[in-house]
Nucleic acid binder design. Structure first.
Length: 953
RNA sequence: GCCGAGGUGGUGAAAUGGCAGACACGCCAGCUUUAGAAGCUGGUGUCCGCAAGGACGUGCGAGUUCAAAUCUCGCCCUCGGCACCA
């Protein structure tokens, strides 16, 4: 059979009969808006597009047959840098290039046979569309969500142009390989940060993949902390820092500010080494992306000589540094450095020899011996001696014969005794070893709470660990009684942990033995004035209150999310509808283009290459630039930047419900009919950008009063990525690109669609298996052969088994499609067909017709062809999805698995629903079971209804 | 470094506490055919065995359970995202 021929034929008929035209409302059908991310017209449709669109179409068709009025639109995300770059490379105008691609891709999309309503097609580069993109910008501007600011952008010094982040590969320009630098340019931004909290909180109610929600959560990066004001000594000025660890403030030994911080300009005259400082700032500014990556973790900085800050909590003065490990755009651009409790500060402090002050110690509750209720509590200062034999890296331990626990030599610290002295004394008293060499004290104290069995009391111990090396085996005599009750053992380094030793402090000792220098977790405060002894959490709250009472700071929530930079100094985008009216004598300033004057048409200019000064090519066009100010009528100039293409795609889902409206972006009634989107499908790579921007737009439009919902997509699913058959990402240079057109030509569209569904879990993707598609093609051929060659009895010959399987399959396929388990749905379809084929003489046309309906979403062309061969008048795709009968699904018998001690020993056929007693009786009839069980006592019988029986002997 | 997903035959995979490998691909044997990425029948996790049957088996190691691919803990590896966010 010529699949290509029948596929083309049906595509034509569907088009003529307009069976996929979607009405806004249909009586007795609920609306269902099923959207796929629209493609970027990059050239040809690749197999990844197919993997996105084909299974999605299966879902659409299923939903429609299941009784919904389904909207399944398609369009093109036509503006953007890649098209422009490709056009430049080929010497074609971006518009010609884009529209040529749209034409090709449209033909390819039609060859898939999807149920798109083409009458709703949108192209974001059409003035009818971008008029509303510009209108959206104006709404943002009017509501204070669009603003202009000088920010640093990626600048390629060789191409003389600004680059988008995506165009910077490892710090180099993707086109010319030159190192990209940062350059300050005036840019338009959207205030997405105003929506950070709502964008975060509303994630909870979305039926989205959990990992995508987590990615957005991390991207938004909420963190709770405090602003603390550090007054500058002898000046009426203070430096504000942001910290999430106010509880460590007594450990602050210096401040660090970012190179961009405005304190430099404010305090210029006070800084003694201003030259050096300005030099450093210049260096930091010039640092390329690449250098910053290389310099990863290596800290540099310069002290602001002559400037001292005062820690408001203890009135100590601390030095102030400028260093580029502090980010200018986050928090206040300044931090209090606490080297004892922050790894970055620790590195910096080590390098510049700054004091390190410990103010939070770990607080451990002994899990093995937790404090006992009702016992008295005793506080002690303790020491643990970690004596290492350097020859074999073993540690000296004591095993108590009475309590069966293992400890280090340990004990309390006596008066007038140092920690090290105490550790030496305890070692000698308990083990006899007296020639040991101090290596180091293992950091500060660790607080631990535990129950001391041997003394029948609860202890709160502040313990210091001391590390020694054993010099020789020479020993002093040890107390007799002690010696009898304790065994000396040497424990391997890898066994020195909480599993072996009973000390609650073990995790800390292990970390410190492994060289960990900072303690960055919560704990108990020490050396912290009135806050000493408090737990971190409590201390933070009390400190926050103290700050507020003394007007020295307050609670503060910060986000990693930054405002969205939307200007592009490029040609191929929607022009930003802004006019600048600033004649020398002063003017109206920034003036939005009046809504009536929209769209601001993107002129068809010849010179669309990026300009040397990093301005948009539109700046060349005097006709475009020079306008009259809409306010005062004086000569003014247009904004020449265009909008980031993500702006176009941030509202496109709204336009599909009313694509030809020239008065509004979409009619309110139609919006109510369709929105929000019920199911959205697209790649996971859009988790942080597109999907966040759309959510922001939706919330903003809700606030402006245009929408009555705040989330665009109620449900979201991602497709996986298809790799080349070599397991590598598909790319022309690797030569592993799979061409869908060739596959369609060879196997037919139905086979390609169906194989993509059958490959594996939809969200998984994986390498393309070039041979697997044959199996699906064969399956379709078998279907065609059987159904088109055999005449079926109209009056049915009853085959209960087949009937049952049919109903089971209807249930399974319905559930599988609903859950995007297309692979197992097809497997079920194959099992059903195998049965039909086997019993075709007893198969009536009713069964075949129901089979064809189940096949219809997967193979829309073949099922349509056969449907008509069997006398169908209308399209199979307008049919109702078959329903299953619960009672017909039930099996009369089942295979009872008989296990002995959990191992399967026999299987017998049993009636469904039999009781444990009956099952036991039947199981014990089995000869094989009899042999194994005779003479043994049955201790227990486990029975799982309609499944198995397990004898424990 | 942090966050997330995953690791099952020769391959894509199925099974989410109850018979591991459904359904396919590939391969082997036979039939048909001496044109084919054709069709049909049977076989196909590994090891032992002529067979009946048995043992082993879901990255590695422990644990929970009558029963673990599935749950818990530790480790290894692969992929994706973020990365000096105080």
């Amino acid at each position: 059979m010529d699949f290509n021929r029948i596929e083309k034929r049906w595509q034509k008929i569907w088009k003529q009969k307009k069976i996929y035209k979607t009405k806004d409302k249909v009586l007795s059908r609920k609306n269902f808006y099923h959207l796929v991310m629209f493609p970027y017209p990059s050239g040809n449709l690749h197999i990844g597009h197919w993997y996105n669109f084909a299974p999605a179409d299966v879902f659409s068709r299923f939903k429609r047959m299941a009784g919904f009025n389904v909207l399944s639109p398609i369009g093109f995300d036509a503006f953007g840098l890649p098209a422009e770059n490709a056009a430049i490379k080929r010497g074609i105008h971006p518009k010609d290039w884009t529209y040529k691609n749209i034409k090709t891709m449209t033909i390819q999309l039609e060859s898939m046979g999807n149920m798109y309503d083409w009458s709703r097609k949108i192209i974001t580069a059409e003035p009818e569309y971008y008029k509303w993109t510009q209108w959206m910008f104006l709404q943002m501007f009017k509501n204070g969500l669009a603003y202009k600011k000088k920010v640093s952008a990626n600048w390629c010094p060789k191409c003389h142009t600004v680059l988008a982040n995506e165009q910077v590969i490892n710090g180099k320009c993707e086109r010319c390989d030159a190192q990209v630098v940062q350059r300050d340019i005036e840019q338009w931004l959207f205030k997405i940060t105003d929506y950070a909290e709502r964008l975060l909180n509303d994630l909870d109610k979305l039926d989205w993949p959990e990992k995508t929600k987590i990615m957005q959560k991390n991207w938004i990066g909420r963190s709770e902390g405090a602003i603390i004001k550090f007054p500058v000594l002898n000046l009426r000025f203070s430096i504000e820092v942001f910290t999430t660890r106010a509880d460590t403030v007594f450990g602050c030994t210096y401040l660090v500010i970012a190179p961009e911080h405005d304190i430099i300009s404010n305090l210029k005259s006070e800084i003694l080494n201003i030259k050096e400082v300005e030099n450093y700032i210049e260096q930091a500014r010039k640092k390329t992306e690449l250098q910053r990556l290389e310099a990863d973790k290596k800290k540099t900085g310069v002290e602001l000589k002559g400037i001292k800050a005062i820690n408001p909590f203890n009135n100590e003065t601390v030095p102030v540094f400028i260093a580029d490990y502090v980010l200018g755009h986050y928090g206040t651009g300044a931090v209090m450095a606490v080297p004892a409790h922050d790894e970055r500060d620790w590195e910096f402090a080590k390098k510049y020899n700054l004091p390190i002050k410990e103010v939070v110690i770990p607080n451990r509750i002994d899990k093995k011996n937790p404090p006992a209720y009702g016992k008295k509590t005793v506080e002690r200062k303790n020491v643990h001696a970690l004596v290492r034999n350097p020859k074999n890296n073993k540690f000296l331990c004591l095993k108590s014969k009475k309590f069966h626990w293992v400890t280090f030599p340990m004990g309390g610290i006596e008066e007038n005794e140092s920690v090290v002295e105490a550790a030496r004394r305890e070692t000698e008293e308990e083990t006899g070893y007296k020639n040991i060499k101090l290596v180091k004290i293992l950091g500060g104290e660790v607080r631990a709470e535990y129950f001391a069995k041997h003394k029948d009391e609860n202890r709160v111990a502040y313990t210091t660990g001391v590390l020694f090396d054993l010099i020789n085996e020479e020993k002093s005599p040890v107390d007799k009684e002690w010696e009898i009750s304790h065994e000396l053992i040497w424990v391997d380094k890898e066994n020195v942990n909480y599993d072996t030793l009973c000390h609650a402090e073990m995790d800390d000792w292990v970390k410190r033995l492994n060289g960990e220098e900072t303690y960055a977790e919560d704990g108990v405060l020490v050396n912290s004035g009135q806050f000493t002894g408090m737990k971190s959490e409590e201390a933070r709250e009390k400190m926050m209150k103290w700050l507020k009472d003394n007007k020295l700071g307050e609670k503060k929530i910060n986000y990693k999310l930054r405002d969205w930079l939307v200007s592009r100094q490029r040609y191929w985008g929607a022009p930003i509808p802004i006019i600048y009216c600033d004649p020398p004598a002063g003017g109206c300033g920034i003036v939005p283009v009046p809504e009536k004057k929209l769209p601001v048409i993107l002129p068809n200019i010849k010179n669309y290459l990026p300009t040397e000064e990093g301005k948009s090519p539109l700046a060349h066009s005097k006709k475009f630039v020079n306008v009259k100010c809409p306010k005062c009528g004086n000569p003014a100039k247009r904004e020449t930047d265009t909008m980031d293409t993500f702006v176009c795609s941030s509202w496109y889902y709204l336009r599909y419900v009313d694509p030809n409206n020239s008065k509004k972006f979409a009619d309110g009634k139609k919006i109510k009919n369709w929105l929000p989107v019920d199911m959205y499908i697209g790649g996971a790579e859009h988790a942080a950008m597109h999907l966040l921007y759309v959510r922001f737009f939706t919330k903003a439009l809700q606030d402006f009063g245009y929408l009555n919902f705040g989330e665009p997509f109620a449900a979201l699913r991602h497709q996986g990525i298809i790799l080349g058959s070599d397991g590598q990402k598909m790319s022309k240079s690797r030569g592993n690109v799979v061409d869908p057109d060739n596959l369609v030509k060879k196997f037919g569209s139905d086979a390609v669609r169906m194989y993509l569904c059958f490959m594996g879990p939809y969200d998984q993707g994986g390498p393309w298996n070039p041979t697997g598609i044959l199996g699906v093609k064969r399956f379709l051929e078998r279907i065609n052969k059987l159904i088109s060659s055999i005449k079926y009895q109209v009056s049915s010959v009853k085959n209960d088994e087949l009937e049952r399987l049919l109903h089971q399959t209807i249930k399974k396929i319905s559930e599988d499609i609903e859950n995007f388990h297309f692979n197992t749905a097809i497997s079920a379809l194959m099992i059903l067909f195998n049965k039909i084929e086997e019993n075709h003489q007893q198969c009536d046309d009713k069964t075949i017709k129901r089979f064809l309906k189940l096949l219809a979403p997967f193979a829309p062309h073949l099922s349509e062809e056969l449907w008509h061969q069997l006398g169908g008048k209308k399209s199979v795709h307008l049919e109702k999805w078959p329903r299953y009968d619960k009672n017909l699904i039930k099996e009369e018998t089942f295979e009872l698995v008989i296990q002995i001690n959990g191992k399967t020993r026999d299987k017998i056929l049993a009636n469904s629903g039999i009781s444990q007693k009956e099952a036991e009786k039947e199981a014990l009839f089995s000869d094989r079971i009899k042999i194994l069980i005779t003479g043994k006592e049955i201790k227990k019988v486990i029975f799982v209804a309609d499944k198995l029986i397990n004898f424990v002997i």
